[in-house]
Amino acid sequence: MRLSQREDCLEALYTIVSESEKAVRLADLSRELQMSDEEIQAILDELEQQGHIARLAGGDVVLTDTGRELGEGVFRKHRTLECFLTEMLGMDADKASQEACRLEHDVSDETIDRLSLYICDSCPGAYRWGRKRERKPAEEGMQSLLDFSEGDELSVVSVCGPGWRRRLIDLGIVPGQSISLKRKLRNRSIVVRVKHCDVALSPEIARSIFVEKRT
Protein backbone atom coordinates (compact mmCIF):
# COMPACT_ATOMS: atom_id res chain seq x y z
CA MET A 1 0.00 0.00 0.00
CA ARG A 2 1.41 3.36 -0.94
CA LEU A 3 2.27 5.84 1.73
CA SER A 4 0.49 8.60 -0.13
CA GLN A 5 -2.79 6.68 -0.06
CA ARG A 6 -2.57 6.16 3.66
CA GLU A 7 -1.78 9.85 4.11
CA ASP A 8 -4.70 10.81 1.87
CA CYS A 9 -6.98 8.63 3.93
CA LEU A 10 -5.78 10.09 7.20
CA GLU A 11 -6.19 13.61 5.87
CA ALA A 12 -9.72 12.82 4.70
CA LEU A 13 -10.57 11.31 8.05
CA TYR A 14 -9.11 14.32 9.78
CA THR A 15 -11.14 16.80 7.69
CA ILE A 16 -14.37 14.90 8.18
CA VAL A 17 -13.81 14.41 11.89
CA SER A 18 -12.90 18.04 12.49
CA GLU A 19 -16.15 19.08 10.82
CA SER A 20 -18.53 16.69 12.56
CA GLU A 21 -16.63 15.42 15.62
CA LYS A 22 -18.19 11.98 15.14
CA ALA A 23 -17.16 8.58 13.94
CA VAL A 24 -16.78 8.48 10.17
CA ARG A 25 -18.96 6.35 7.98
CA LEU A 26 -17.34 4.39 5.21
CA ALA A 27 -19.57 5.99 2.60
CA ASP A 28 -18.38 9.49 3.53
CA LEU A 29 -14.84 8.38 3.24
CA SER A 30 -15.19 6.78 -0.18
CA ARG A 31 -16.95 9.91 -1.44
CA GLU A 32 -14.13 12.12 -0.16
CA LEU A 33 -11.36 9.94 -1.56
CA GLN A 34 -13.13 8.88 -4.71
CA MET A 35 -12.03 5.31 -4.26
CA SER A 36 -13.83 1.98 -4.18
CA ASP A 37 -14.86 0.46 -0.88
CA GLU A 38 -12.41 -2.43 -1.31
CA GLU A 39 -9.50 -0.11 -1.78
CA ILE A 40 -10.47 1.89 1.25
CA GLN A 41 -10.92 -1.21 3.37
CA ALA A 42 -7.39 -2.31 2.50
CA ILE A 43 -5.98 1.05 3.49
CA LEU A 44 -7.99 1.09 6.70
CA ASP A 45 -6.73 -2.38 7.61
CA GLU A 46 -3.23 -1.15 7.39
CA LEU A 47 -3.93 2.03 9.33
CA GLU A 48 -5.61 0.01 12.03
CA GLN A 49 -2.61 -2.25 12.25
CA GLN A 50 -0.38 0.78 12.74
CA GLY A 51 -2.68 2.03 15.45
CA HIS A 52 -3.75 5.22 13.72
CA ILE A 53 -7.47 4.37 13.60
CA ALA A 54 -9.90 2.18 15.43
CA ARG A 55 -12.99 0.54 13.93
CA LEU A 56 -16.29 0.64 15.76
CA ALA A 57 -19.04 -1.94 15.48
CA GLY A 58 -20.86 -1.35 12.20
CA GLY A 59 -17.74 -0.37 10.30
CA ASP A 60 -17.51 3.25 11.37
CA VAL A 61 -14.03 4.63 11.86
CA VAL A 62 -12.51 6.87 14.55
CA LEU A 63 -9.04 8.41 14.61
CA THR A 64 -6.70 7.54 17.46
CA ASP A 65 -4.53 10.27 18.94
CA THR A 66 -1.57 9.41 16.74
CA GLY A 67 -3.81 9.18 13.73
CA ARG A 68 -5.27 12.57 14.44
CA GLU A 69 -1.83 14.04 14.79
CA LEU A 70 -0.60 12.56 11.53
CA GLY A 71 -3.73 13.61 9.68
CA GLU A 72 -3.37 17.13 10.95
CA GLY A 73 0.22 17.21 9.78
CA VAL A 74 -0.70 16.12 6.26
CA PHE A 75 -3.54 18.59 6.22
CA ARG A 76 -1.30 21.47 7.25
CA LYS A 77 1.39 20.61 4.75
CA HIS A 78 -1.26 20.46 2.07
CA ARG A 79 -2.62 23.91 2.90
CA THR A 80 0.86 25.41 2.99
CA LEU A 81 1.87 24.01 -0.36
CA GLU A 82 -1.41 25.07 -1.85
CA CYS A 83 -0.85 28.59 -0.69
CA PHE A 84 2.74 28.57 -1.87
CA LEU A 85 1.83 27.46 -5.37
CA THR A 86 -0.80 30.14 -5.58
CA GLU A 87 1.68 32.76 -4.44
CA MET A 88 4.40 31.47 -6.66
CA LEU A 89 2.65 30.78 -9.90
CA GLY A 90 -0.50 32.76 -9.74
CA MET A 91 -2.29 29.43 -10.25
CA ASP A 92 -5.97 29.33 -9.49
CA ALA A 93 -6.80 27.75 -6.19
CA ASP A 94 -8.44 24.59 -7.55
CA LYS A 95 -5.59 23.67 -9.82
CA ALA A 96 -3.10 24.49 -7.10
CA SER A 97 -4.97 22.25 -4.73
CA GLN A 98 -4.72 19.31 -7.11
CA GLU A 99 -1.07 20.00 -7.72
CA ALA A 100 -0.38 20.32 -4.02
CA CYS A 101 -2.19 17.08 -3.38
CA ARG A 102 0.14 15.30 -5.71
CA LEU A 103 3.22 17.10 -4.39
CA GLU A 104 2.64 16.66 -0.70
CA HIS A 105 3.49 12.99 -0.94
CA ASP A 106 6.10 13.06 -3.57
CA VAL A 107 8.33 15.80 -2.26
CA SER A 108 10.06 13.53 0.17
CA ASP A 109 10.97 10.89 -2.41
CA GLU A 110 11.30 11.89 -6.01
CA THR A 111 12.22 15.48 -5.57
CA ILE A 112 14.84 14.78 -3.01
CA ASP A 113 16.46 12.25 -5.27
CA ARG A 114 16.59 14.73 -8.07
CA LEU A 115 17.81 17.41 -5.73
CA SER A 116 20.69 15.49 -4.33
CA LEU A 117 22.01 15.09 -7.86
CA TYR A 118 22.62 18.79 -7.99
CA ILE A 119 23.70 19.69 -4.54
CA CYS A 120 25.47 16.39 -4.07
CA ASP A 121 24.35 15.74 -0.56
CA SER A 122 25.52 12.28 -1.37
CA CYS A 123 29.08 13.56 -1.25
CA PRO A 124 30.78 12.15 1.82
CA GLY A 125 30.51 14.72 4.55
CA ALA A 126 34.08 14.65 5.55
CA TYR A 127 37.54 13.69 4.69
CA ARG A 128 39.03 10.78 6.54
CA TRP A 129 42.67 10.37 7.04
CA GLY A 130 44.15 7.15 5.82
CA ARG A 131 41.57 6.52 3.16
CA LYS A 132 42.48 9.02 0.54
CA ARG A 133 40.30 8.61 -2.45
CA GLU A 134 39.87 10.68 -5.52
CA ARG A 135 36.37 12.00 -5.65
CA LYS A 136 34.70 12.43 -8.96
CA PRO A 137 32.85 15.64 -9.66
CA ALA A 138 29.14 15.28 -9.10
CA GLU A 139 28.46 15.74 -12.75
CA GLU A 140 30.54 15.00 -15.77
CA GLY A 141 32.63 17.84 -17.06
CA MET A 142 32.61 19.89 -13.87
CA GLN A 143 35.92 21.15 -12.60
CA SER A 144 36.80 21.89 -9.02
CA LEU A 145 39.04 24.68 -7.75
CA LEU A 146 41.93 22.25 -7.71
CA ASP A 147 41.84 21.92 -11.48
CA PHE A 148 42.92 25.50 -12.01
CA SER A 149 46.14 27.33 -11.45
CA GLU A 150 47.28 30.45 -9.64
CA GLY A 151 45.99 33.69 -11.06
CA ASP A 152 42.91 32.22 -12.76
CA GLU A 153 39.75 34.30 -12.66
CA LEU A 154 36.86 31.97 -11.86
CA SER A 155 33.17 31.85 -11.23
CA VAL A 156 31.54 29.48 -8.73
CA VAL A 157 29.19 26.93 -10.26
CA SER A 158 28.23 24.86 -7.26
CA VAL A 159 29.37 23.95 -3.79
CA CYS A 160 28.85 20.61 -2.14
CA GLY A 161 29.51 19.00 1.21
CA PRO A 162 27.05 19.81 3.99
CA GLY A 163 29.54 20.08 6.83
CA TRP A 164 31.34 23.21 5.76
CA ARG A 165 28.89 24.64 3.28
CA ARG A 166 27.54 27.22 5.68
CA ARG A 167 30.85 29.00 6.32
CA LEU A 168 31.64 29.05 2.61
CA ILE A 169 28.27 30.63 1.93
CA ASP A 170 28.80 33.28 4.58
CA LEU A 171 32.19 34.17 3.18
CA GLY A 172 30.51 34.73 -0.18
CA ILE A 173 31.43 31.52 -1.97
CA VAL A 174 28.01 30.95 -3.53
CA PRO A 175 27.08 29.92 -7.06
CA GLY A 176 27.57 32.81 -9.44
CA GLN A 177 30.22 34.57 -7.36
CA SER A 178 33.42 35.67 -9.07
CA ILE A 179 36.56 34.55 -7.32
CA SER A 180 40.22 34.46 -8.18
CA LEU A 181 42.68 31.75 -7.31
CA LYS A 182 45.37 33.67 -5.55
CA ARG A 183 47.67 30.94 -4.41
CA LYS A 184 47.99 27.23 -4.78
CA LEU A 185 50.71 25.39 -2.93
CA ARG A 186 52.21 22.21 -4.22
CA ASN A 187 50.36 20.36 -1.46
CA ARG A 188 47.16 21.86 -2.91
CA SER A 189 46.21 24.13 -0.06
CA ILE A 190 44.79 27.16 -1.78
CA VAL A 191 43.89 30.80 -1.18
CA VAL A 192 41.04 32.38 -3.10
CA ARG A 193 40.20 36.03 -3.23
CA VAL A 194 36.50 36.63 -2.82
CA LYS A 195 34.88 40.02 -2.21
CA HIS A 196 38.30 41.62 -1.62
CA CYS A 197 39.12 39.14 1.16
CA ASP A 198 41.54 36.23 1.05
CA VAL A 199 40.21 32.89 2.21
CA ALA A 200 42.45 29.87 2.77
CA LEU A 201 41.00 26.45 2.01
CA SER A 202 42.16 22.90 2.60
CA PRO A 203 42.43 20.69 -0.49
CA GLU A 204 39.41 18.59 0.42
CA ILE A 205 37.29 21.71 0.63
CA ALA A 206 38.65 23.19 -2.56
CA ARG A 207 37.73 19.90 -4.20
CA SER A 208 34.09 20.40 -3.27
CA ILE A 209 33.84 23.83 -4.92
CA PHE A 210 33.06 23.55 -8.60
CA VAL A 211 34.03 26.49 -10.76
CA GLU A 212 34.43 27.58 -14.33
CA LYS A 213 36.73 30.05 -15.96
CA ARG A 214 35.33 33.55 -16.18
CA THR A 215 35.23 35.04 -19.60
Binding site: Y127, G130, R167, L168
Partner: peptide, 16 residues
Amino acid sequence: LSRFTPGEQFGMILEM
Protein backbone atom coordinates in the same frame (compact mmCIF):
# COMPACT_ATOMS: atom_id res chain seq x y z
CA LEU B 1 45.97 9.91 17.81
CA SER B 2 44.95 10.69 14.26
CA ARG B 3 45.00 6.94 13.62
CA PHE B 4 42.90 5.96 16.60
CA THR B 5 40.62 8.84 17.41
CA PRO B 6 37.16 8.19 16.01
CA GLY B 7 35.22 10.85 14.19
CA GLU B 8 35.30 13.05 11.17
CA GLN B 9 37.85 15.53 10.03
CA PHE B 10 36.89 18.80 8.44
CA GLY B 11 39.04 20.99 6.32
CA MET B 12 40.08 24.56 6.87
CA ILE B 13 38.08 27.57 5.77
CA LEU B 14 39.94 30.53 7.14
CA GLU B 15 39.81 34.19 6.29
CA MET B 16 43.27 35.70 6.06
